[in-house]
């Protein structure tokens, strides 16, 4: 489970909660090698390598054989047959979420550092729909969660529906008592993925930032993986 480890500073809580929510999957984090100099390109390359190492560790934990994910033309990871997953990087940290393809038709994960209030105000008009802005305003925590969970949705759903879509294609619903967080599609994306469809979402926050995930169980194949467990709203 989620024993604290060096290099996870601030992520231990969200990581433990994601692992608890998706016990059939494996989630691993990897700290990127520090860069002595250089701009984002050097940091990003180190994060890319860390993401691949995290994925290899998650694959090893899941099926006993570490794997190195390939890379599609668009930059998304390409998984060996039988595996399904996603990788995310954020400011020196990488995370990989992997599951069995027989259980999941799509998995998405995303980490984002805590947004400064100025950045939250800047991106809210583009990252949030009007309804979301009405509900969440420009609160940095919620803007970060909405942005992040839509990244997770894109990673889980875009390969499945065979198309890209924008941040206004779904919106995070306000929490209702007793129900886990969910996204609602705002437009038709593909047969079976029509406007109004609700998709469960996992939202966690901690000192280092926010961690979100979207897990789409394979219809008719869920016995091996099961549904995500209901999760609590993010701790403030």
């Amino acid at each position: 489970m989620a024993e604290p480890r060096p290099g996870l500073a601030g992520w231990e809580g969200p990581l433990a909660r994601l692992r608890a929510a998706l016990p059939a999957c494996r989630v691993e984090m990897q700290r990127a090698a520090p860069c002595a100099a250089g701009g984002a390109r050097h940091r990003r390359h180190a994060e890319y390598r860390a993401g691949r190492l995290a994925a290899a560790a998650a694959a090893g934990a899941l099926c006993g054989t570490p794997c190195l994910a390939g890379r599609s033309a668009g930059g998304a990871p390409r998984w060996p047959a039988g595996l399904c997953g996603a990788i995310s990087h954020c400011e020196g940290q990488a995370i990989a979420l992997l599951g069995h393809a027989m259980a999941w038709s799509g998995l998405g994960v995303d980490i984002e550092q805590a947004l400064p209030p100025t950045v939250a105000r800047e991106i809210a008009p583009v990252a949030l729909t009007a309804a979301e802005r009405g509900e969440f305003g420009t609160d940095p925590l919620w803007v970060g969660l909405v942005f992040s969970v839509k990244e997770s949705l894109f990673k889980a759903l875009s390969p499945l529906v065979g198309r890209r879509f924008d941040f206004d294609a779904a919106e995070l619903l306000p929490e209702a008592a007793g129900s886990p967080p969910s996204l609602r599609l705002t437009r038709d994306l593909a047969p079976g993925w029509s406007a109004g469809r609700r998709i469960g979402a996992m939202l966690f926050s901690g000192p280092a930032g926010v961690l979100t995930a979207v897990a789409l169980p394979r219809e008719g194949g869920g016995r091996a993986g099961g549904q995500p467990r209901s999760v609590a709203p993010p701790s403030m």
Binding site: A40, R44, V119, E122, I123, P125, V126, A127, F147, F167
Partner: peptide, 15 residues
């Protein structure tokens, strides 16, 4: 992407 572009930076430019 090869220069370090990520989603948050794309979002900031769009904004």
């Amino acid at each position: 992407i090869y220069y370090g572009l990520d989603s948050l930076r794309v979002m900031k430019l769009a904004a």
